[in-house]
């Protein structure tokens, strides 16, 4: 359970860090009034949806780190035969990374538009929408479409990987290492599919006249989610290749299990 405890420690210390900025030492029974408490506002200064997503990502993080922990514990038992991953996984990794990068640049473009619009708005408010919109909207749309295509390609790539692994004689119920392989990649794929629904929706918004800064905040969420899932994917491959299996971890496991 070491991995999950490390992840949990990160989540908990982040929350504690945030809490420690909430004047936990205040003596609320001595203070009344509104003004003094409003400054240095105690709300988190992020949009609601982003806070929601961050909380959700910690839940997903727990889910995967728990799987990793159980993977490490299961691989201690002698029937374990490590699985050899086909080289296709590296291509998949690059596809997902590229999708992530495209989303990030879509985000940057949207931000630039919003900034530009603000600057312009100072001079001539009327022109804002006419001037900036078309140009940016177009490039955001193509960046998003690229991200969609790459992600779908990633999913197809994962299916091909499954096919190859099965071709090598590793089936779901064969060796526990292959059981973990299918379950983990499957679960990751499901999360990607869930994200794709949101991404498709966001992309479709570029066709109607939703304001770009609204699309931008959705792209922000998608980008964060994609980066996180890419990170999880890397961790997953590390775990399955057994690369983190160094003497230090072995020692910890001796002590704890």
């Amino acid at each position: 359970m070491t991995v999950v405890l490390i992840f949990l420690a990160i989540v908990i210390s982040t929350s504690m860090w945030w809490l420690s900025h909430q004047r936990l030492g205040a003596k609320p029974w001595l203070e009344s009034g509104l003004d003094n408490l409003d400054q240095g506002s105690h709300q988190v200064s992020l949009p609601k949806a982003k806070v929601g997503l961050l909380v959700f990502l910690s839940v997903i993080g727990m889910l995967f780190t728990l799987f990793f922990s159980s993977h490490f514990m299961r691989q201690e038992i002698e029937d374990w035969r490590s699985i050899s991953l086909p080289s296709m996984v590296w291509i998949n990794g690059i596809l997902l990374l590229a999708a992530s990068v495209y989303l990030q640049s879509a985000l940057i473009t949207a931000r630039r538009q919003t900034l530009g619009a603000q600057n312009l708005a100072v001079r001539s408010p009327v022109q804002v929408s006419i001037l900036s919109d078309g140009k940016y909207r177009h490039s955001i749309r193509s960046l998003l479409i690229n991200a969609c295509v790459l992600t779908v390609a990633f999913l197809i790539g994962q299916l091909i990987t499954w096919h190859e692994v099965a071709g090598n004689g590793f089936f779901l119920s064969g060796n526990p290492s292959s059981s973990y392989f299918y379950v983990l990649t499957g679960l990751h794929g499901l999360h990607i599919i869930g994200g794709l629904v949101a991404l498709f929706h966001t992309t479709s918004l570029t066709w109607n006249d939703t304001q770009i800064h609204k699309i931008g905040s959705r792209i922000d969420l998608c980008a964060l989610y994609w980066h996180f899932l890419f990170f999880i994917w890397c961790a997953m491959i590390f775990v399955m290749l057994g690369w983190t299996y160094d003497p230090l971890i072995e020692l910890c496991q001796r002590v704890i299990l």
């Binding site: 949990l8 839940v59 727990m62 889910l63 728990l66 119920s173 526990p176 059981s179």
Partner: peptide
């Protein structure tokens, strides 16, 4: 609950696989 329930989810998913698809988690 948000941080603890995933552990139960992991356990139920793996047990479902054991029960239905004869894995040996």
């Amino acid at each position: 609950a948000l941080l603890a329930f995933p552990a139960l989810l992991v356990a139920t998913v793996m047990m479902l696989f054991d029960r239905l698809l004869e894995t040996s988690f």
